[in-house]
Design a protein around this nucleic acid. Sequence first.
DNA 1: GGTAATTGGTACAAAATTAAATCAGTTCAA
DNA 2: TTGAACTGATTTAATTTTGTACCAATTACC
Lengths: 135, 135
Amino acid sequence: MSKIDAAKIWSLNYNLLMSVIAGVSADIAELGLDTKELFVLSQVEEHPYPAELAATLSMPKPTVTVYVKRLEAAGFLRREIDAADLRRHRLQVTPAGRKVTSRGLALLSDAFGARLGRLSAAEQAELRSLLEKLS
Amino acid sequence: MSKIDAAKIWSLNYNLLMSVIAGVSADIAELGLDTKELFVLSQVEEHPYPAELAATLSMPKPTVTVYVKRLEAAGFLRREIDAADLRRHRLQVTPAGRKVTSRGLALLSDAFGARLGRLSAAEQAELRSLLEKLS
DNA sequence: GGTAATTGGTACAAAATTAAATCAGTTCAA
DNA sequence: TTGAACTGATTTAATTTTGTACCAATTACC
């Protein structure tokens, strides 16, 4: 595959994701969250430390600090000092946070699902498998 | 495909793109461009008006204004008032802009291509075709 | 033990991004 | 025509995001 094609695939993909985000951000905002906050929150269970979040979301540490602080203030998250390493802040999603996460992801899924609906079930499975290989 | 899967596909994809961006942004910066500016510049030939750029890049109009101004100051872009509609600013990529665009896209392609390399040629073609259906 | 190097997290100031208001040009209906 | 509604683009002011510098806890090594 030529370089031009890689760039083409990339930009198809990028524009797709950006337009899906643009389409749902207003609805997500009604949940009391903004889009980036949802992304952070949705990864907390898998990556319960700010430094891990920063790495997996490709986002600077101070940015994570800000989001975590807001999510905590909104009651979607709790922070506690890790007993084993007093530098670490272990994060825990509250029940309210879990609820809002699943609603937010559902909105995202609906919007993205509307696009995915153009593919057959087999094609969707194929896409997922290709993306997993790339990840 | 369930809602959960749509969200999963989405986030696989999102994290993939963000990590590729994070990996190349330093190299792109050396060209005298930042990543978003490259995205804007790379779409100018296809969409030569700021309003069109804003729509295709899912980005607010004032943001486009700022990037266009910077790209013009850097000599990568020229602006002229459209004779047929004096409100419109027709954009034109300069030779220097074209050069820097192709270098920037090459960097992006290299980085993304390194991931794509995990797929066979047939799989890459398949991925492109799936993404085109979604776009 | 003691101390240099590393890691997790944050504060603050600066830079980037955007919403809201605005201005100029165009369209359209009466 | 004229003027109400609309569109393209920009300015201004506010918000968001981030680079830099920093502190505290841990680790590695002598």
